[in-house]
Measured scan of single mutants.
Amino acid sequence: DIEITTNGEEDAKRVIKELQKRNLEYHIEVHGNQWVIKVR
C-alpha cells in the first residue's frame, strides 16, 4: 500500500485524477485539511 498525504481538497483531486487514469483502487481519509489517500 502507498500512502499519499495531500494539502487539502484541490491537491487531493489532482492526485485522484492521476490514480483514476491508472485504474488504481484508493481510499481517502480526511484529517482536518489534510487528505490522506491510501492506494492499494
Rank of each mutant, 00 (worst) to 15 (best):
H31E: 05
V36N: 03
D11F: 08
I2H: 08
R40H: 15
G8R: 11
K13Y: 13
Y26L: 04
V39E: 00
I4F: 09
G32F: 04
T6S: 05
V15Q: 02
K17T: 10
D1I: 15
W35K: 02
H27V: 14
E18L: 10
Q20G: 05
H27N: 10
W35H: 03
N7A: 09
H31N: 11
T5N: 06
N23S: 06
N33M: 09
K38Q: 05
H27Y: 14
E10K: 09
T6N: 02
H27G: 06
I4S: 01
E25F: 10
L24S: 03
H27I: 14
T6K: 03
D1F: 15
I37R: 00
I28W: 04
W35A: 02
Y26K: 00
H27K: 12
Q34I: 15
V36L: 08
E3V: 15
V36A: 02
E18P: 00
D1R: 10
K17G: 08
V36E: 01
E10M: 08
V36F: 05
I37H: 00
I4M: 03
K13M: 15
E29V: 10
E3T: 15
V39R: 01
I2P: 03
G8T: 15
G32M: 04
V30Q: 09
E18Q: 08
I37Q: 00
K17Q: 12
L19C: 06
G8D: 14
D11T: 09
L19F: 03
R40W: 12
V39F: 08
E9W: 15
R22G: 06
H31C: 12
R40G: 09
E10A: 12
G32W: 03
E3G: 03
D1G: 12
K17D: 10
T5Y: 15
R22A: 13
I28H: 01
E10R: 09
K21E: 13
T6F: 10
W35L: 05
L24M: 10
E25N: 10
V36K: 05
H31M: 10
E9S: 06
E18H: 07
Q34R: 13
L24F: 06
I28R: 00
L24R: 05
N33L: 08
G8N: 15
I16D: 00
R22N: 11
G32I: 03
E9H: 07
G8Y: 07
K38Y: 14
I37F: 07
E29R: 05
